[in-house]
Design a protein around this nucleic acid. Structure first.
Length: 432
RNA sequence: UCCCCGGUAGCUCAAUGGUAGAGUACACGGCUGUUAACCGUGGUGUUGUAGGUUCGAGUCCUACCCGGGGAGCCA
């Protein structure tokens, strides 16, 4: 049918005869009226079947449709304040493509998280989940757009790796023919190599952590975007992450407002995301915690409650920089002015989502890096190629990693990252 | 790995140690404007598993399994 339209475009077809192809989301009947609520992946729309307007067979068919029946409906679009979304279709034609062979398990009522996660493949059809994942798609598009507009080259890093980037624990080990390999936990080392070849690069892909974490911020498989800039400094990374987050949020506000409304997101909180972001030296963050009544000792890393206390003081993301060297990865460059500190930065999202960005300036001196690798007990052989980057034209460089699911959770105002990826992989959950 | 909570009908949940129930979904009937519509009629259980205490266990005890929330670690 050539006049098929999508529900998100209904407003452009008022008073026209159109065809919708979709599924029955819900149905309400009242005597000589059936209200068929149809979804097509772009939204939901109400269609009205009036007994006087259609054949008895069609009215009977409409009355017996069950939830998630796949249907093609035809009728005239009209504006009506009583219709959800403001538009409805006066139905004149109805084709049942396939009736469900069994009762659809997910109903318009409360369900438990475990049940919904077991039915994730169907849960995706629900309004809220649909909105979250459409926003995720837009976030990913905005990420690519941002870097391309700034002259970054997209260079992907491998998923199979021979070694750990940040230590050997928490890696998924897999058989690799007669050898062992690990699923990557970061593409950074490869992004560094790419930056030496292309200048400004970013890699984007799934990463894996075999941490036995059971919290609303953790997945065992999550997506990370990691830009890396040759000749970049800590300051460059801080400016880039600020502009990056502003760009993403602006894009979502521009293009995904209907989805944000489905999620009942407070738009004012997103509209507040403008540069500059507050910057907090690690020392000052520690002071802030102590003044806030948390017994925190200098030198430690911040836990979830610490991050929440800090982020609650601001209405936009906070950049915390110059963390102690001891709690950061081996490749972080020390601060020339204070050997105990590193040229590192974490970005804490507002509203309790926690850290969404971690990055900094990398160690570019061969001898220092060799010593660090030995000090961390890492296998020198595995890092031979990485050290080549310091042998052949080493330059200062910096970059960061952004966790996509946490970013989507923050933008959507969703409690748990498991709803921010189509098929989450978590501790104790591998299906569907 | 540690701490806390839970597991009863397809789903959401009730049930002083004493006959295992309601709402919802589904089916049929009624109503021309419903917003998770409403009204009437219709039936569903190895109470997570295995032991134990008891005249009697969904309920108390022990172990295990599964799930949820949080911590640590991280994005």
């Amino acid at each position: 049918m050539s006049d098929q339209v999508y529900i998100e475009d209904l407003g452009q077809h008022v008073d026209q005869e159109v065809t919708l192809k979709g599924w029955l989301y819900n149905k309400r009947s009242k005597g000589k009226l059936h209200f068929l609520i149809v979804r097509d992946g772009t939204g939901i729309a109400q269609t009205v079947v009036f007994k006087g307007d259609v054949s008895p067979e069609l009215f009977e068919l409409a009355g017996h449709l069950t939830q998630e029946a796949s249907i093609i409906v035809r009728g005239q679009v009209r504006a009506d304040e009583r219709a959800p979304g403001g538009y409805e279709i006066g139905l004149t034609g109805l084709e049942l493509v396939a009736a469900p062979t069994e009762e659809y398990p997910i109903q318009p009522q409360e369900h438990g998280t475990g049940f919904l996660m077991d039915h994730r493949h169907l849960w995706l059809r629900s309004r809220k989940q649909n909105a979250i994942l459409r926003i995720r798609s837009e976030v990913i598009f905005a990420i690519h757009e941002f870097f391309h507009l700034r002259g970054f080259t997209h260079v992907d890093s491998p998923v199979f790796t021979p070694n750990a980037c940040e230590g050997t624990t928490n890696l998924f080990e897999v058989d690799y023919f007669d050898d062992k390999a690990y699923l990557t936990q970061s593409g950074q080392l490869y992004a560094e190599a790419s930056a030496m070849a292309f200048g400004k690069v970013y890699c984007f892909g799934p990463t894996f952590r075999a941490e036995k974490s059971k919290t609303r911020r953790h997945l065992t498989e999550f997506w990370m975007v990691e830009p890396e800039m040759a000749y970049g400094t800590l300051e460059d990374v801080m400016q880039l992450s600020e502009a990056f987050l502003c760009h993403i949020v602006a894009r979502i506000l521009e293009k995904r407002r209907p989805e944000l409304e489905v999620l009942e997101r407070d738009l004012a909180k997103l509209e507040a995301i403008q540069a500059p972001f507050p910057r907090l030296h690690y020392d000052d963050a520690v002071k802030m915690l102590n003044e806030g009544g948390i017994d925190f000792e200098w030198g430690g890393d911040f836990g979830a409650p610490d991050e929440t206390l800090i982020s609650e003081k601001y209405d936009r993301p906070v950049l915390i920089h110059h963390y102690p060297r001891a709690i950061k990865a081996f490749y972080m460059k020390p601060d020339a002015e204070n050997d105990k500190l590193s040229l590192s930065v974490d970005v804490i999202a507002p509203e309790g989502v926690g850290e969404i960005i971690g990055g900094g300036q990398r160690e570019d001196d061969l001898q220092v890096l060799e010593a660090k690798i030995a000090e961390h007990g890492l296998p020198e052989e595995a890092f031979k190629w990485y050290l080549d980057l310091r042998r052949y034209g080493s330059v200062p460089h910096s970059g960061f990693g952004l966790g996509v699911e946490r970013t989507v959770a923050w933008i959507c105002g969703v409690e748990h990252v498991r709803e921010c990826i189509p098929f989450p992989r978590m501790l104790y959950r591998l299906t569907p």
